[in-house]
Nucleic acid binder design. Structure first.
Length: 271
DNA sequence: ATAAGGCCCTGACCGC
DNA sequence: TGCGGTCAGGGCCTTA
């Protein structure tokens, strides 16, 4: 599941393959993968453009093209972007292929077909409602406190709400709440100042560490070269990977469902 | 405005 | 071995 650290890793490792390259063709094998415009218009407008820059916003990957166009990808649950040669057969479940002028291709592999692509002159069409980036300097403990103060929903739901904070998904929300010793069902506005401080520090520690480890390969996450990340080896609770008991107190790691998502936590440490 | 639930999809997994 | 049923999950859409 690509979240902020995974998309950041993909961005970092894709850059050398794509920056300055011209898109000389596309293959589209799943009609609903493109949002907003038809497959024909997508092809017509993207072919011939150069990739001038590559950025990440939340879980969106943004290719800045020449002529004011932006090619935007969201990998959702099961998407990956794999680089190979145009002479190679694209891997199974490839929904789209981007052909570059250096003989390389980017394969958008997505077994679940949840992933989406945009081609637009206005980035906000895809990313407009996103909350702040949690790793920038202006995201502070006070900013987090302000976001949480007006929300009564479970803290887990607010952390994973992209319109509240961008980039945190199911895995890293569980890890951050565990590190901060906060129960996932606590109403966001009920967190005390020390709890907010701990949560802020957990976010600022866990996300960069996961980027350092090139992301977490739980299911269907691969780096552009096909390698896996190793961030999941550091997981304490997320996705049930932390063992049956808490490594701190020996308490039971429980699974509950919050807003339809599996949530793992220590029933003793997280109040 | 916020909260909550359904939906999209299909591979993986389970029980028989 | 094969079959049917169930589950997972991000974000959009609808409803309250």
């Amino acid at each position: 599941m690509p979240e902020l650290p995974e998309v950041e890793t993909i961005k970092n490792e894709l850059a050398s393959h794509v920056l300055g390259r011209k898109i000389c063709g596309v293959g589209l094998f799943w009609e609903r993968i493109v949002r907003g415009i038809s497959l024909d218009e997508f092809s017509r407008r993207i072919v011939g453009k150069k990739i001038a820059d590559l950025k990440r916003r939340g879980k969106f990957l943004i290719f800045q093209l020449t002529d004011g166009e932006y090619f935007i990808i969201h990998l959702k649950v099961s998407g990956s972007l794999l680089v190979s040669r145009d002479s190679d057969e694209p891997p199974r479940f490839t929904r789209a292929v981007i052909y570059l002028d250096n003989g390389k291709i980017i394969c958008f592999r997505d077994p679940r077909k949840f992933g989406r692509m945009w081609l637009t002159r206005d980035v906000s069409e895809a990313t407009g409602k996103l909350g702040p980036e949690p790793l920038t300097k202006d995201f502070t403990s006070e900013v987090l406190a302000g976001i949480l103060a007006r929300r009564k929903a479970p803290i887990k739901a607010v952390l994973t709400d992209q319109n509240a904070i961008a980039g945190i998904g199911n895995m890293y929300a569980d890890e951050a709440l565990y590190a901060a010793r906060v129960h996932p069902l606590r109403p966001a506005s009920s967190l005390s100042p020390p709890e907010i401080k701990r949560l802020f520090e957990a976010i600022r520690e866990i996300l960069p560490a996961a980027i350092e480890s090139k992301g977490a390969s739980v299911v269907n996450y691969y780096r552009p070269g096909g390698e896996k990340g190793i961030a999941h080896f550091a997981f304490k609770v997320a996705h049930g990977l932390g063992g049956k008991t808490c490594s701190v107190c020996g308490g039971e790691i429980k699974r509950i469902v919050v807003r339809g998502r599996g949530s793992y936590f220590c029933a003793t440490c997280q109040k």
